[in-house]
Computed example of a mutant assay.
Amino acid sequence: MIGPAGGPGPRRLHIVACAHGTDNPDGRRLINGLRGDLADELALQGIDAVVHEAYVDVQEPRLEAVLAALPPGEDAIVAPLLLSEGFHSRVDIADAAAARPHTGVSAPVGPDPRLAAVLARRLAEAGHQPGDAVVLAAAGTRIEAGQRQAARMAELLAAELGHPVAVAFGSAATPSVTEAVGAARAAGAPRVGVASFLLAPGFFHDRLAEAGADYVSTALLPGVTIAKCVAGRLAEAISAGPAHTE
């Protein structure tokens, strides 16, 4: 079974930190930094694990290849470096993990109140002022659970800011970020800011500049908060045990 250092289970634990993948050099650097922060955070929690790099799109190595190369019989958990449920977590990651014995999957990073605090800081850095309307911009998914998680994240950010926050999506769900910004202006907001609910710079973050807002916050990374959230999801998965043990 999967167990932390000093706990039950003689086999090594492998953590496969799986991101979407991006062509953006800054995005790649930040995701690599997140893996280093995650390894440090796991060590602080007493979890003895080897952290591996993997992607579901754009970059190599692909998740299936990383899992296939792990030593047979040793435990693994795929940690999605994704902010909410979506096709990649429900299909790509789930299928890859199901194909390898002794492999589990932890939950996506969000929603989490700690992410709301990071989003609020990013908005302040971008120039947020009292009275501004705020739109939380998520990447988007057709999976309803992921849409609900993004909406929950908007609620957490609203509690952090002390005023309502609308949720919008970069693709696959409605409203779009442009539509949400337009609705805020139509409602009389003097200024509209977009809170980027994205891990790192890349395709979706670049598109936020075209939504017509007065300002757009930077992505969530860098910062150790994301690693702490991922480590928390992994601790939950370790406690539950691997999803596949045969």
Rank of each mutant, 00 (worst) to 15 (best):
G21R: 05
G21S: 01
N24V: 07
N24L: 09
P25G: 06
D26S: 15
D26A: 15
D26E: 15
L30W: 12
N32L: 09
N32K: 11
G33E: 11
L34T: 02
L34K: 03
L34E: 10
L34M: 12
R35P: 11
R35W: 01
G36P: 04
G36C: 11
G36V: 02
D37I: 11
D37W: 07
D37T: 08
L38P: 13
D40R: 15
D40I: 13
D40G: 13
E41S: 09
L42I: 11
A43P: 08
A43N: 09
L44V: 07
L44Q: 14
G46L: 10
D48R: 14
D48S: 09
A49Q: 07
A49G: 06
V50D: 04
V51L: 11
V51R: 04
H52A: 09
E53C: 15
E53D: 15
E53M: 14
E53I: 09
E53Q: 14
A54M: 10
Y55I: 02
Y55S: 09
V56F: 03
Q59V: 01
Q59I: 00
E60R: 13
R62P: 00
E64A: 15
A65N: 10
A65S: 11
V66Q: 07
V66K: 01
A68D: 14
A68K: 13
L70G: 07
P71F: 00
P71K: 02
P71I: 01
P72W: 03
P72S: 10
G73M: 06
E74R: 10
E74F: 02
D75V: 11
D75G: 08
A76R: 08
I77S: 05
V78D: 11
V78N: 06
P80G: 03
P80M: 03
P80I: 01
L82W: 00
L82E: 00
L83P: 01
S84R: 04
S84G: 14
E85K: 13
G86Y: 00
G86K: 00
F87V: 00
F87D: 03
S89M: 08
S89R: 04
D92Q: 04
D92C: 03
I93N: 05
I93K: 04
I93E: 05
A94V: 09
A94N: 08
A97K: 02
A97Q: 07
A97F: 09
A99D: 13
A99Y: 07
P101N: 01
P101I: 04
H102Q: 15
T103R: 07
T103F: 06
G104F: 14
S106Q: 04
A107C: 11
A107Q: 14
A107F: 09
P108V: 05
P108A: 06
